[in-house]
Design a protein around this nucleic acid. Structure first.
Length: 116
RNA sequence: AGAGCAGACUGAACAGUCGCGGGUACAGAACCGAAAGGUUGUAUGCGAGGAAAGUCCGGGCUCCUCAGGGCAAAAUGAAUAACGGCUAACAGCCGCCGGGGGCAACCCCAGGGAGAGUGCAACAGAGAUAUACCGCCGCAUUUUUGCGGUAAGGGUGGAAAGGCGAGGUAAGAGCUCACCGGCGCAGCCGAGAGGCUGCGGCCCUGUAAACCCUAUUCGGAGCAACACCGUGGAAGGACAAUACGAGCCCUGCGUGUCCUAUGGAGGUGGCAUUGAGCCGCUGCGGCAACGCACGGUCAAGAUAGAUGACUGUUUUUAACAGAACCCGGCUUACAGGUCUGGUCUUAAA
RNA sequence: GGAGGAUUACUCAAGUGGUGAAGAGGCUCCCCUGCUAAGGGAGUAGGUCGGGUAACCGGCGCGAGGGUUCAAAUCCCUUGUCCUCCG
């Protein structure tokens, strides 16, 4: 099972922030856009507003763990899942359990067409 | 038993399922890339802190600078500051002296020099380093003024010419004396800062975290340093030895060197098994910091940045908080807990 | 990761040891006007503590804490927040 690629360039993040497919939840904000690379990519943003370095690291880990629940579903449609997704952590994300993120991530991926 | 002081340690644990980053061993085909290189599977073992933080100091390392060695010059500037020691070094640590606080255990101190010089001391006050406003005393006098003496008293101020008491005097004053404080000299003790004793004379405003003086130390920049591989792009000029190659000097070396304007994206090394390393209920020296010997041990290494998620149990939701080249300190943040050694009060023996 | 800078009223800001912390905009009140705008004049940091019936007076207060000094926005140390630069 191959790992997902991550988004590294700043211009990619900026392109996603301008996209119309944006889903806001109390814990996170999700931006989705198609790309032409033929692979699924994701990125996680944790700004200094969220907290100190320990808190930001925990937000990234929780988001990554919740995304791994949908890994098989994304892999199964590998041919069509050519999307870029950015998760932005909000302040409430600091004290959240990972299963509280299953529903926001699943719903946003489903509505944007990444998974069925 | 209560209160308080100092030091050291710990920094939730265990089990299960899924997952992450390196190391080592084995396996081995293909792919990507210009190259350097990267990407896989299995097994095994490892995987954040006492502050990883702030970047306040000190070093290693690298470059400035072709190799080696020496000096870090001049100018400007910065840092430290009783004394003795420890350390690779330090603004650190230990001991000790002096001062201050506490009944005590103990704690705190940027703690050299104001008798080298300059500056500043607003307002108030008569006067701020110099003075006579009121007062006191003497003399003169037109009877309310002038001259002189005086720092005891008043008032101002952070600071007013050592403090206080006695003698003394016209009134006063270290003018004289006792005690205290400060200064100088001598003797003794101590490794030294310093301490004790005796004698002498009565001269000192404060500020150096104002300039400054004295002593000591410091070349600058920083791993985004730097070295290597480097698709693409790639031009011009100067010099030919009495030249160029380091801030200076010496020795050597080089022939092509130098300048404009050279290496952009990306990758690899630096970089983490060898160091001022860590551990020891070991031994010796030392009051201690620490040193020496002996034994054991190798322990994260990412590059958009690895430790997480879920379930169960204990006792609950666990404080402050995430390595980024590496070490030694300092400072700051911090829930709860453990241990050791002193002190005071009360009670008992 | 490293290097540097700033912080003063609601906002922009002056102030480099000395009495009560300039100035401008904004805001409040008054004058002018039939009414408003413009103009003119006056005032203005908030909080807290103490006193006073009140008007008001005094203390603390220049991001925070501590120190030097007779005296600190200013000098020194520690610390919070914000900003800029270095591939």
């Amino acid at each position: 099972m191959a790992k997902f690629d991550t988004i590294k360039e700043n211009y990619t993040f900026r392109r996603l922030y301008k996209s119309k497919h944006c889903y806001v939840y109390p814990q996170i904000v999700v931006y989705v856009a198609k790309n032409r690379l033929g692979v699924f990519r994701y990125g996680i943003t944790t700004s200094k507003k969220v907290g100190n370095a320990v808190t930001r690291s925990r937000c990234r880990r929780v988001i990554r763990a919740a995304l791994s629940m949908y890994k098989d579903e994304i892999e199964s449609r590998n041919i069509n899942a050519s999307y870029d997704v950015v998760f932005v952590a909000r302040v409430k994300c600091a004290h959240v359990k990972s299963f509280e993120l299953y529903e926001p991530i699943g719903e946003s991926l489903r509505r944007s067409g990444v998974i069925k």
